[in-house]
């Protein structure tokens, strides 16, 4: 790979079916709205290198199928995620009501320290709104989540959502609250990082290169 970066963060995009998870990812990666998209079956993923607080961070983003039964297929991809976009649709109370379940899943399957940003998507459809900004921001506060309303269609707040989450993780690394060296932190040092200065994690890295079959 030609790109260099200081850190790699593993992100998840989770939430009920039809909330616009894949469209948020597409908007973030391609900077445009995905008109004719299929529904996601299983997992998809994309990545982008961004600049946050003077650091280059590669976001590796895992987009999951929204139908509940797919969790048995997607849950193995939760492991070791550092951040998550938890998405609901502001025009559908049902998708909002499902948030608690998604949240429990993310915290138990990924990591209790996972940094989560709640995204009320389809902000452009304000006329059909079923969930108020105030209500969702209370929910976010009670559950220690960051919160934004987004529109994958217009692109409003999409970039902010991903960057905000990345920035919070970086801050937590700086303050020592998050340890990138810990197994399953969802954070890796990139090529441009200080890795060389630290004790190499040689044995684990080497093992991975060997074939287990």
């Amino acid at each position: 790979m030609s790109e260099t970066y200081d850190f790699l963060f593993k992100f998840l995009v989770i939430g009920s079916a039809g909330t616009g998870k894949s469209c948020l990812l597409h908007q973030f990666i391609e900077n445009k709205f995905k008109q004719d998209s299929n529904h996601t079956i299983g997992v998809e993923f994309g990545s982008r290198v961004v600049n946050v607080g003077g650091k280059t961070v590669k976001l590796q983003i895992w987009d999951t199928a929204g139908q509940e039964r797919f969790r048995s297929v997607t849950r193995s991809y939760y492991r070791g995620a550092a951040g998550a976009l938890l998405v609901y649709d502001i025009t559908s109370r049902e998708t909002y009501n499902a948030l608690t379940n998604w949240l429990t899943d993310a915290r138990t399957l990924a990591s209790p320290n996972i940094v989560i940003i709640l995204c009320g998507n389809k902000k452009d459809l304000d006329a059909d709104r079923e969930v108020t900004f105030l209500e969702a921001s209370r929910f976010a506060q009670e559950n220690e989540l960051m919160f934004l309303e987004t529109s994958a269609l217009t692109g409003e707040n999409v970039e902010e959502g991903f960057l905000k989450c990345a920035r919070t993780i970086l801050n937590k690394i700086d303050s020592g609250e998050l340890d990138p060296e810990r197994m399953g932190s969802g954070i890796q040092y990139g090529d441009a990082s200080l890795r060389q200065l630290r004790q190499p994690r040689g044995s684990t890295a080497q093992n991975k290169q060997q074939c287990s079959c």
């Binding site: 299983g42 997992v43 991809y77 991975k208």
Partner: peptide
């Protein structure tokens, strides 16, 4: 086998690409 080893080195399991093959 060689392909399988190559994929495993990158942590690419069938669950990453094959569910749509079977389900559709």
């Amino acid at each position: 086998k060689d392909l399988q080893c190559h994929l495993e080195q990158q942590d690419i399991a069938p669950s990453l690409y094959a569910p749509p093959w079977f389900l559709t």
